[in-house]
């Protein structure tokens, strides 16, 4: 895991290109998937916040999955959901404290961000580089408590 997904809300212009890119990147059998990234209002004027899976260190989705369908992908660092294993009990959807595990009614699948297997489409299409997937150079420090 050498790269991290970086979100900079101050650069987001709310164009929602990332949502489109996500839908088309996850199209299956000619059907676009539901977007796994959401551009929401940040509570201030002209501030947009792209919200997507944070790939938590101690992920509630993986803890809640009773059939171990959600595991850490060692290459990308993403929590990957195995659709063959998933029994659609919706436990992860209810457990995620950030609401980033969701149900796609069109494809009838539980979905979550998988970082497109190491090449996120949303970051590629973001015109202002509010979303980036870049190598980690400086280790993020734990905040002092």
């Amino acid at each position: 895991m050498n790269s991290r997904f970086v979100v900079k809300p101050e650069l987001c212009i709310g164009c929602r290109t990332c949502e489109l890119a996500c839908s088309f990147a996850h199209a299956k059998n000619g059907r676009p998937g539901r977007s796994r990234i959401f551009v929401l209002g940040g509570g201030f004027k002209d501030l947009f916040v792209p919200v997507t899976c944070l790939q938590c260190e101690e992920a509630a989705c993986a803890k809640s999955c009773l059939v171990n369908a959600i595991t850490r992908n060692p290459e990308t660092g993403a929590m990957d959901l195995d659709h063959d294993k998933c029994v659609r009990c919706m436990a992860c959807i209810a457990a995620c404290p950030f609401g980033c595990s969701l149900f796609d009614e069109q494809q009838e699948l539980v979905i979550k961000c998988d970082l497109c297997g190491g090449d996120p489409a949303c970051a590629k299409f973001c015109p202002t580089k509010a979303l980036e997937y870049k190598p980690v150079t400086v280790r993020a420090l734990r905040p002092a408590i």
Partner: peptide, 11 residues
């Protein structure tokens, strides 16, 4: 949950 996250990140 997503709205909560968005407003926290917004702040």
């Amino acid at each position: 949950h997503r709205d909560e996250l968005a407003s926290t990140m917004g702040r």
